[in-house]
Computed example of a mutant assay.
Amino acid sequence: MDSAWIALQLTLKVAGWATFINLFLGVATGYAMARWRWAGRDLLDAALTLPMVMPPTVLGYYLLVVIGTQGTLGQWLLSTFGIRLIFTWQAAVIAATIVAFPLVFKAARAAFENVEPQLEDAARSLGLSESAVFFRVSLPLAWRGILAGLLLSFARALGEFGATLMVAGSIAGKTQTLSIAVYEAVQAGQDDTAHFLVAITSLTCIAVLLSAGRLVPGRVMVRS
């Protein structure tokens, strides 16, 4: 069972980093989409939401094209800095970040859209800068929805499989997350290990979802 605990630690590490990155990317993008209007906003919204509905293997293929050793970014990083992203835990973080991003983005956008603009205007009339309005008015009023989105993003990152398998592989102790370890255990006929891994994953996800539900009771967290 030692390999199971190693897979759990790696999964929490990957999901934690993915959620941390999405905290900044998702909140910033959600705020921009909620407050600013420009041509093509709906198209951009659809593009940012695409990882939520795109098949994981397709997303993994796109990532291979970008960060693979023959990809545009991957080849540049390898030739310039000697950095190889493919088949590393960092590649798993990239995959989990992209897959879970829409959950933070949509939740943050909905949360900021629920903040009354009059409150922000009142703060501006008192001489507050735009950054002060954001940190002292908008963010404190929207934090519950944002935190709920982050918890859902964390749960989604915990269960990421397809894209992670394509860009990070299944290297025991290095890139083998819980979901991939379950797949490998089933393929190897190790039913006891598979049951144990499934129980850990299920309990963790249930705890996260219950926490998210308590933050925004009786309210739809994500809307277009």
Score class of each variant (00 low, 15 high):
W17F: 15
P55A: 15
K106I: 11
L59P: 02
L147W: 05
T204F: 10
G16M: 14
L203N: 09
V222F: 08
A15Q: 06
L210C: 06
V208G: 00
L77S: 01
C205M: 13
L139D: 03
A39E: 12
Y61H: 02
I67K: 04
E160G: 04
K106Y: 07
E130M: 10
A122K: 10
L210E: 03
G60I: 04
L12V: 14
V27W: 05
L158V: 15
G16S: 11
L78C: 13
R223L: 11
D42G: 12
N22C: 01
G68M: 01
L43I: 09
L10V: 08
G26Q: 02
L197F: 05
A110Y: 02
L50I: 14
D2F: 14
A212T: 01
G218T: 12
Q75T: 09
A91N: 06
Y183M: 12
P56L: 13
N114M: 14
Y62A: 08
I206K: 05
F105I: 03
A132N: 14
G82E: 11
G169K: 00
A207V: 10
K174G: 08
S170N: 15
Y183D: 13
T69S: 15
Y183Q: 08
S138E: 04
L165D: 02
I67T: 07
E160H: 07
N22H: 01
V14W: 04
T175M: 02
G82P: 01
L178P: 00
M1V: 15
A7M: 06
V208L: 12
T57G: 09
D121F: 13
L147G: 03
D191T: 09
T57S: 13
Q90E: 10
L126G: 12
D192S: 05
V222D: 09
L85A: 11
I67P: 00
I86P: 04
D192E: 11
A194D: 00
I83R: 09
F101K: 02
V14S: 07
D42R: 13
T80G: 07
G149P: 07
K13W: 14
T49P: 04
A47C: 13
G169I: 01
L25H: 08
F196M: 11
A123T: 07
I98C: 03
T80W: 09
R144P: 05
A15M: 14
F81Q: 10
Y62G: 05
L158K: 01
A4W: 03
V182M: 14
V115C: 01
Q187M: 12
A163Y: 00
V198I: 15
L10N: 00
F87L: 12
Q90A: 08
R84Q: 13
G16P: 02
V216F: 06
A132S: 15
A46F: 10
A123I: 08
F24G: 06
W36H: 09
W143T: 04
I180C: 03
T49Q: 06
L147T: 06
A47S: 09
I83G: 11
L85Y: 01
L12H: 07
A32F: 07
R41F: 07
G60S: 12
V65M: 15
V222C: 14
T193M: 13
A108V: 00
A39V: 14
L23D: 01
T19S: 08
G213H: 03
L128H: 09
A92I: 01
R124V: 06
L139C: 07
L77D: 05
R223P: 08
W5Q: 11
G162Q: 03
G127V: 09
G169E: 05
A28H: 06
I180A: 05
G159K: 07
L43T: 14
W5F: 14
E116I: 10
